[in-house]
């Protein structure tokens, strides 16, 4: 898997503030197709906000952002709908739709947004459930699934839209420790298959293992960026050194 040069996500001089509090202070980032990027940093460093800007869950005040060459235009529902079809997102709290079965969760967006017909959507949903190791859970509701299973259904749901990039927002933070592995294995398999991934994570050994680049965010800026070997093995700034050492305490 070799990342090609066409950027899937291109972020230029992005600034975002809540009132007077600026949380992103000019972010520049190009994510190439097939690249796996881990974003690390203290809470409040802006890493989740950055991720949420990429699919328009957060509105930013200045700068530009494109996905697959399409610019993110707030206040233009048609453009946002188009852009969001290229960006999948997985949340810390799974956010499965509790009134629908696992299968219906996966089929909802393809049938509504991509106008896929029922049978084709079902074939796809079953295939995706099998891919995340839950082939037998097609008819299960969220409250009949463990946290790890719910998160894997959420991954399948995001994949059903065939996104160009998948955003993972601390997707194992709400899981019991023994369930973390099953979710990370799915993510790892996606990385191996060449999916472009941007993930905010606290799982440092996982970030080290699967990512092509690691971003260390500090106070709303990209403080350090590089390969896992560079960042974890030879941190350049005092902040990153401190952050990494705090993890070992």
């Amino acid at each position: 898997m070799s990342p090609t040069d066409s950027p899937v996500v291109e972020i230029t001089a992005l600034r975002k503030s809540y009132g007077a509090n600026e949380v992103l202070k000019g972010i520049d980032l190009r994510v190439r197709s097939g690249e796996v990027i881990a974003i690390i940093g203290k809470s409040g460093s802006g890493k989740s906000t950055l991720l949420r800007c990429i699919n328009g869950l957060e509105v930013f005040q200045s700068g530009s952002l494109t996905v697959d060459g399409k610019p993110l235009l707030h206040g233009n529902p048609a453009a946002m709908r188009e852009l969001r079809q290229h960006v999948g997102m997985i949340f810390q709290s799974f956010n499965l739709f509790p009134h629908l079965t696992a299968g219906q969760n996966i089929m909802l967006a393809p049938t509504l947004v991509k106008k896929k017909v029922g049978a084709a959507a079902e074939v796809q949903a079953r295939k995706l459930l099998e891919r995340v190791g839950l082939a037998e859970k097609f008819c299960a509701f969220a409250d009949q699934l463990s946290g790890g299973q719910q998160q894997r259904v959420a991954i399948a749901r995001a994949l059903a839209m065939e996104p160009a990039v998948l955003l993972c927002d601390e997707i194992t933070s709400a899981l019991d420790p023994e369930l973390v592995g099953e979710v990370l294995r799915v993510v790892e398999s996606l990385a191996e298959e060449g999916m472009t991934l941007l993930m905010v994570t606290h799982e440092m050994s996982f970030a080290r293992k699967v990512s092509d680049r690691v971003i260390f965010m500090h106070q709303g800026r990209v403080h350090e960026i590089g390969t896992p070997a560079e960042l974890f093995g030879n941190p350049q700034t005092a902040e990153l050194k401190q952050f990494l050492s705090s993890l070992h305490d």
Partner: peptide, 16 residues
């Protein structure tokens, strides 16, 4: 209804 339900459905490109 939890905000996550709005956000998840929005991320899946559903209209309002």
């Amino acid at each position: 209804i939890p905000r996550g339900q709005w956000e998840a459905s929005q991320s899946l490109a559903l209209s309002f």
